[in-house]
Each structure stands twice: as C-alpha cells, then as structure tokens.
Design a protein around this nucleic acid. Sequence first.
DNA 1: GAGTGGTCTAGACCACGTA
DNA 2: ACGTGGTCTAGACCACTCG
Lengths: 257, 257
Amino acid sequence: MPEPRYQRIASDLRAAISSGELGPGAQIPAEPELMSRYGVARGTVRTALAQLTNEGLLAVESGRGTFVRRRRQLVYRPQEEFRPQPGSPEMDRFMAARADEGRVPSQTIEVAIVRPPAEVAERLELAEDDLTVVRRRVRSLDGEPFNINDSYFPAKLVEGSEIANPADIARGTRQVLAELGHAEARALDEIVVRMPQPDEVHRLALGPGTPVAVHVVTAYTAAGRPVRCVVNVLPGDRHVIAFERRRPEDAEQTPRP
Amino acid sequence: MPEPRYQRIASDLRAAISSGELGPGAQIPAEPELMSRYGVARGTVRTALAQLTNEGLLAVESGRGTFVRRRRQLVYRPQEEFRPQPGSPEMDRFMAARADEGRVPSQTIEVAIVRPPAEVAERLELAEDDLTVVRRRVRSLDGEPFNINDSYFPAKLVEGSEIANPADIARGTRQVLAELGHAEARALDEIVVRMPQPDEVHRLALGPGTPVAVHVVTAYTAAGRPVRCVVNVLPGDRHVIAFERRRPEDAEQTPRP
DNA sequence: GAGTGGTCTAGACCACGTA
DNA sequence: ACGTGGTCTAGACCACTCG
C-alpha cells in the first residue's frame, strides 16, 4: 500500500513549513498549481490542504490565497489570574499586565440567568432545574478577542444583587459575594484541552485547527459550599500557560534510603 | 446566502450528540443513509463528518462504522510531576498513582543523540550545531499510550554517563546530574496547547481532532545554567491538568484602600 | 476579468470488517 | 457477499479579492 497522494502533498508542504522554507505568512501555491505539480484532481489537493488547516498550520483567506499561519502567544498564569488587585478587580491581572505592555485591553460584559451547562451544574452541586446567574466576558487586546471568562453563580445566592446586573463591578464579584455572606475560602483548578465548540469559535473568532485550553475554577466557602464556577476559554494559538513550581525544598524532603 | 448543506448536516448531528440522543459509543448513520436522508452527494456527507471528526466528536472505525467518541481523562498535576519519589524515581508519580488505582502502567525508554528541535535548543541555550542526549519515554496504561516524556540534556554534560544509556535509571536522572556536578536548583514551566505533529500522532495513537497540551520544563543549576529540558506531551482526550493555587492568605494581603 | 478558494455532483475502485 | 469507510476523478457553479 503506497502512501495516499494527498498525504504525500501534505507531507511535502509540512516539511517546507517546518524547515522554514515557507515561513510564517508565506503564501502556499494555489490549488491549480498544486494540481498540475502533482498531477491530481482538485479534490485531492483540497484534502491535503484541509489536513494541514486542521493541524493549525495554514490560514485560508478566501479569494486571496492560503498562507502559513502566524502565531503570537501571551503568557497566562492561572495561579495569579484570580488574585484580587487594587484598582481594577474585575479587569484582572491579565489585562492590566498587558496594558503595561502598550496594548489596549477591553472587555464586553453580558449577564444572563440560565440553566447551567452540565459541567458547571455538577461543580456547583446544583439540582436538575436550578438556575445560575452568568457573567459572560470576552476580553480583547487591540480589538482582537483573546479569551472568554464566564462566571456562574447559583441564582438563589445572588439574585437581586449587583452580580445580576450587567455593569462592571468596581470592587469585584468576590467582594460582593463576601458581603452577601458567601466569602470564598478555597478553590479548585482544572484545565482540559479540547477542540472548541461552535459558539466558542464564533465568540473568539477562532480559525480552524485551533484547540482551546479550558481553565475551570470552582470556588468554595469555608463551609465547603461551592459559590462560583469560572470557565476560562483560552485559544491555543494565543496563550502560553505558565505557573510556579513548589519550592524545590519541598521536593527534596524525601531522601532515599 | 443559506447555510451550506454540509454545515446543516454537521449541526444536526452535533445537536444530537450534545443532547445525548446519540450517546458516547453510539453509531452515526452510515454515509449512504445520510445521503438519502438529506438528498446530497457522498462528498457533501463526508465534508460534514470530517468537520465533526476534526472537532473530536466522532471516532471512525474503517470498515465498521462511525461512532460518537468516548473520552475518559486522568488527572495530571504538573507541579508534582517531577518531584522525586522513593522507590521508583524515573517511573514517576503519575504512573505510580495510577498503579494504585488498579491500572497497569508501563513505559518504553529510547535513548538517542540528536540535534534538538528549535524550541529545546533555545531553552537549553545551545549553539547551532550542539547536540543533545534525549531520553524518550512513552508511558502507557493498560497497554494504551498515555503521554510522551522526552528529556533533553546537553550532550557535552552527560556523554559517557548513565544518562546516555537506554536503561532505567533507578535513582533518577536528576540524581545522576547532581553527581556529575550539575545539580538542578530551579525550573521553568510552560504549557502550550496545539494540534499534534505527525510523529506525536503516531507515538500516542491519537485520533483526528485530538489536541495536545505540551508541558515544557526547563531545569537550571544554581548558577543559572540550563541542564535539562523535558517535553511532556499530553493528549487532550486523556488528561485533566490540575494544580494547586497559592495560599488564599497570599491573595488577601493587598487590602483595598 | 482573472485568480482565488467554497461548495457540490455523480460516478469509480479499493481495503477492511462482519458474517 | 455485503456493508462500511478511504481515496480519487472530472467536471460544475458560486462568491470573493485584486488590479
């Protein structure tokens, strides 16, 4: 069994890209050119290009051409993301730090009362028909969407409070929760990696072949009651996730016999 | 402009999957069935199925049928991954913990002297033609590959030592490095999310539409010299990444004015 | 208008799995 | 033998971008 022809075409292009022969932004030969170069039908060429697109290597601009994808990534620190910060709690560290670098951060806030998705309902320990207040934010840099930050609160806890209003909360939702008698005491962090859902593709203007990291934070009161579940969606082509290791001393305290 | 027909087919199937009508493992209608149901040509049906496959929703078993993908994920703790452990340092915590759960861990080790990939060369601060010793491991559970763990060392530092031999090092490579006078003092952790490269697809037996998280650890001596670069490749459909937050006390020490 | 990619058809032959 | 998906062809019409 020989290698399928579309695989051969894809391999050639992949090699040209990883060797730097076709650098970021370079234009891929047009489909008719590849058809004659390899002596195949258009469908075969398109199968090859689709594969590379789904690997995130190519960006197609309809009517203009197909290009090697550029990627620039910013650092995301999950451990620091949710530490309150003087001055602008809800526009948190990530955005503030980027502003220092001369970029223009912005965000949109949208508030709704919804039946939560299954993964959220489970983490908030809600019953089948319990509702949540969700504050949906899309954070952008220089006008380009960068990540999604959706905070879910059990509706019973926050109804009628500021949290249910779609305005920026200057002192932070954490503070408001505390004033309502539900101070957060600890949190659980999870990150899963998957392909985006269609609504995420739309909100983040994701190209094909762009996976996302989903960082879910569940915050609990001292009594162990979950009071907030934050779903952060980070496009893979725009973020590097960094975190601090435990002190090396910790790692050394089990000497071998 | 109406929605393309293949999009319509994909949306219908996606809805059936997310609503649970087509549960994990359920078989998707065969291509001829979808052709007659929607009155389209085979290519159109295949375009729709390809899209869902690239979203990681479908698993195709050639000759048998197309099915809704199952996923089961294990917890990966990047902060603990590299803490030495009594008994089996190189078969580290991840595998040991899984063994406690009644699963059967195994690993393959392969050692080579190679010109490092660009991302590794950069982190080890190597010159153009410097070589590295790489210890490539694939860790498996119950015979299924689970993740890749490739450790790169500057060849100059470890040539002739145990590290260049393809045997399990009972006391751990970290210990060997220390004996060679290059004790690790601190480390930098980075995680990026991307689609896998073809060799990774092969080594990990990844299905289409499976993104990976790449956890890169760069270890330095007290003098700041990089002595090891570990590239961990974690398939998105098999891992949940978890980590510990800093103490909440830290987060509270900046009271608002 | 010429060139790009996006969608779609109607056929064909093949390898693979199940029975 | 039959049904599954895998590969491939040779056309077609469309919308978009650019000079």
